[in-house]
Design a protein around this nucleic acid. Structure first.
Lengths: 214, 214
DNA sequence: GCAAGTATTAGGGTATGCCCTAATTTTCGC
DNA sequence: GCGAAAATTAGGGCATACCCTAATACTTGC
């Protein structure tokens, strides 16, 4: 039996939830809170498995509630219910330690799936939520792109040599691994130095790590 | 009709894809590439809607391919196929502009769904992928601070030498700047190598940057 | 304060890295 | 295809980094 605590200040919504969940054999609503501060009760927390947590509470945000609860009791699982699918909200919720985030316009069936998933310790997110996050990641990077320093073009062979240098191989060892002469390796190394504007190995490694290639 | 280009160096895998997709009425495989560089062909790109792109190509990474293609032709959609679900991979792929990322162990049905979704301009990610990203977001914030590895204790003088090494100074130059003999600098450098478990300058710089000190 | 440990200093010898030059092969634009 | 440009190959010569050992100064615990 999955024991549930609902935390939401909209009584009508809470009643709707109770009705929906009453049809599930394995789910039992143990308690309801209409304010954030009511939740911080050790005995209460020990009796329940999952908290269905609203983000917009009258006295504090659901994010603060989530953080504080997980400091008090690591066993309880938190499933956030929210009307908002803005990226900033979602990432904050994820950082707070909640295991799931579903939108309030989610259907009965999906809500039950989310509850059972979170109850088992796994994570659950509405499709719209994952889309928001994924799109956010994609856009962030597009904006971040144009800053990109002009990476000098390293040839295939030079890249191989560079990788082996970064792995602490000596030129001799690199020559052996790539089946070329010591002198050739030194030439590649030299070209890398000039392409990356480095004076020696130290600069080479530093530039390589700054630009990307590790 | 969704016109597809497959880019993957594993011929067996490509043939498997062809077989699977041949059963779909609305999907047509127009061309196959077994190397990244074959893809950069304007005429080819104009004929197709979606690229099914492998990440591990012999000559370059799928991420590079994705970036270059989207610079050439904004209309083409990219769906990445990969065996890896590591977070770093996925975020790189998202940044590259690809619209979807599915694992190679995905079933036929899901693959077809992914193709149709991406063809319509929307994004699609395997469930495992979204889980990885979500877990990554959740853990990032928790880990952020406490990671800090046990930094071997570097002495004041060694630190000075290390800083100058990182600034591409030779031992001779360091000796001049610190008013000590060349031989002393070499000794400090030697001790740094052993304290940081490095074999040479390359390892020294790498470890130094990984640990903190830049 | 004194002994034990560590930091800083340094030398001799060898391996390695770096610069200049240059031939051959591969790639690329037209 | 063909010619130019770039990549890959390599040698000689010198500077630099790395290894071993070891003396002197500087901390630190008791």
């Amino acid at each position: 039996m999955i024991k549930i605590l609902i935390v939401d200040d909209h009584k009508m919504f809470v009643e709707g939830l109770e009705f929906i969940l009453s049809k599930e054999e394995d789910i039992e609503i143990v308690h309801r809170c209409y304010e954030g501060k009511e939740v911080f009760n050790k005995e209460l927390l020990e009796k329940i498995d999952i908290i269905l947590l609203d983000i917009n509470l009258p006295d504090m945000t659901g994010i603060e509630v989530s953080e504080r609860i997980l400091k008090m009791n690591q066993n309880v699982k938190i499933l956030v219910l929210s009307m908002h699918d803005e990226e900033s909200y979602i990432t904050e919720v994820l950082k707070s330690g909640a295991l799931g985030y579903v939108l309030k316009n989610t259907g009965r069936k999906e809500l039950v799936t989310a509850i059972r998933t979170v109850a088992s310790g796994r994570t659950y997110f509405s499709e719209a939520i994952t889309n928001t996050i994924m799109n956010g990641l994609m856009n962030n990077s597009k904006k971040a792109k144009p800053i990109e320093k002009d990476v000098p073009k390293i040839t295939r062979r030079e890249k191989e040599v560079l990788d082996l240098i970064l792995d602490e191989n000596t030129n001799q060892e690199i020559a052996g691994k790539l089946f070329i002469s010591l002198k050739t390796v030194e030439a590649h190394r030299s070209n890398l130095l000039s392409k990356l504007n480095a004076r020696n190995t130290a600069g080479l490694v530093k530039k390589a790590m700054e630009l990307n290639l590790v």
